[in-house]
Design a protein around this nucleic acid. Sequence first.
DNA 1: CTGTTAGCGCGTTCAT
DNA 2: ATGAACGCGCTAACAG
Lengths: 348, 348
Amino acid sequence: MPDSDVGASVTGTPGRAATLGDVARIAGVSMATASKAINGRSEVAPKTRQRVLDAAKEVAFTPNELARSLINGRTGTVGLLTSDLEGRFVIPILMGAEDAFGAGQVNVFLCDARGDAIREQHHLNALLTRRVDGIIVVGRTTDPRPSLGHKLPVPVVYAYAPSDDPTDVSITPDNRDGGRLAVEHLIACGRSRIAMITGEPQYAAARDRVTGVQNALAAAGLDLVGTPMFSEWTEHWGRDAAAMLLAQHPEIDGIVAGSDQIARGVLDTVRDLGRDVPTDVAVVSFDNWEILATNSRPELSSIDANLQQLGRLAATRIFEAIEGTDVAPGVEYLPGRLVLRGSTIPRR
Amino acid sequence: MPDSDVGASVTGTPGRAATLGDVARIAGVSMATASKAINGRSEVAPKTRQRVLDAAKEVAFTPNELARSLINGRTGTVGLLTSDLEGRFVIPILMGAEDAFGAGQVNVFLCDARGDAIREQHHLNALLTRRVDGIIVVGRTTDPRPSLGHKLPVPVVYAYAPSDDPTDVSITPDNRDGGRLAVEHLIACGRSRIAMITGEPQYAAARDRVTGVQNALAAAGLDLVGTPMFSEWTEHWGRDAAAMLLAQHPEIDGIVAGSDQIARGVLDTVRDLGRDVPTDVAVVSFDNWEILATNSRPELSSIDANLQQLGRLAATRIFEAIEGTDVAPGVEYLPGRLVLRGSTIPRR
DNA sequence: CTGTTAGCGCGTTCAT
DNA sequence: ATGAACGCGCTAACAG
């Protein structure tokens, strides 16, 4: 059978991996000594250590982390429990978490519950059974989500979607402050007749951003032109809403869009009406989804939610809890940052 | 200190988790019997089993999978090693893999190497050290990537980006066949003067799609209008290329775009020129990235790469290799599917 | 049906 | 500086 060794090429080395016992035997020392040598303990003679290390290299010894974990009670793994199908939020958060832990120090189990509570419970059990050191729960909206409860043997941090239990630890984007950033920027650009088009009012994100916008306008002695327009989070809605708005209020010189998608629709309509962005109408939006924001005409100025930092923060909180540090419960609001592009500032 | 129990709320139950020994003691049986009872073995008296299960529930016993893995040599975990920063490919693949394994049966470590070979090596070591049962390597292009080699003690499958070693197991989208699908669809829509705009020629995906398009045209006795236009994978390029193309060849009635992004640019230009999609010019593209494809005017007909199925396949191959089944090495090309929308077929 | 023993791979006393 | 012995939590093989 010419294929017989081909299986091995897929399966990898067939024989079982080398163990510390193998290394010790080859080096002619006890397992205890081999252990010390490999872990860089000081109570080993230099020559002995070298013998052990050579032996380890010879058999390609890889310490079995499972056995270690069994002893010291820590696995160096964290579970990321998400319902974010598209991975738009989860990936930056995952990257931030890896950064915070240090690459390779901690490994992350990514579990997609797909919005299904039963599947989430399955994944949760699997994670606990595998003895993760902590769990980060990532929602796909900023609306509060059900708490996993306090019966869990490991720390839990809620990211993006906060827990509905105020005694849990949650970190979520500060959308009100984002609204403020957007408005203050438009005002700085000399705009004073500002309207807002956003997504579904069922979303806290939609409402919070509007609130932030209205508060900031009030603080500047201004008022929103028309009422905030809520509907779908789509380009289609952005186009339709902008058309209605500009027909009723041609004086508008600035628009805050609730998402980059909506903003792209707004740009389309403004162009179709023969008006220029940003000269006639400046547009600023939320999410800073690069693929959308940097491919439009003009490119979009957008509020970035700093998701990677959010992931770092979540990981840090988990870490603190593992270390035994007291972590203040409650919802932490992470400010976003404005990324400037051509939809508010003319490009030179 | 009012905060003292708050730490616990974050940290979870402070005491160590219950062990099988605890359960056995409470139920008044030996650990062996408790083990059998909990694992549903038959050699246990029904009443004894019930006593054990009650005890387990009482102390919220969760079996320590680490200890089990240490015994049977399998962890029920798989590593997903990726360089796909945006997670556009990795998430569907991850979901497909979870499906294939069964939710909660297997957990997936997601590691992002960020295109850095050193970071990849770190992650690889960490995965091996944690004794994953297999590794799926996901690239961010369809260009062959360096093999991890055959020295690994676990099976490896390359997904999306194939390995440059033909004796590895790789699964990658069939972009040539995708080109054929696109062209045959345009022809079925009555088009015969077809052009192609795509991304960077350094990408195998760009070249393969063009090859597929040209072959399919030739098979139908047709020829591409103009030469295939290679440049950036951006909307900007789609707009510019379409403008040039339509100026030189106003007779064009069908355009294949190398990506949904490029297609969106094409749509913009065709509109700007006062021509109608799909009546005057039909447009079909690749990727079926929903957020782009379903928000354009009209919506985009696009070739979906079936990434979720690709993930399922990769997981299946890993599984087979773990089970000892011989897996045929080489590159497997997974056909895509055409998703019809308004850019090729007028909506009624 | 139940309990005893052994051992998965490793780190950690505590003698020597 | 080195090694024997014990245990992490659990399952498998056997004896009762």
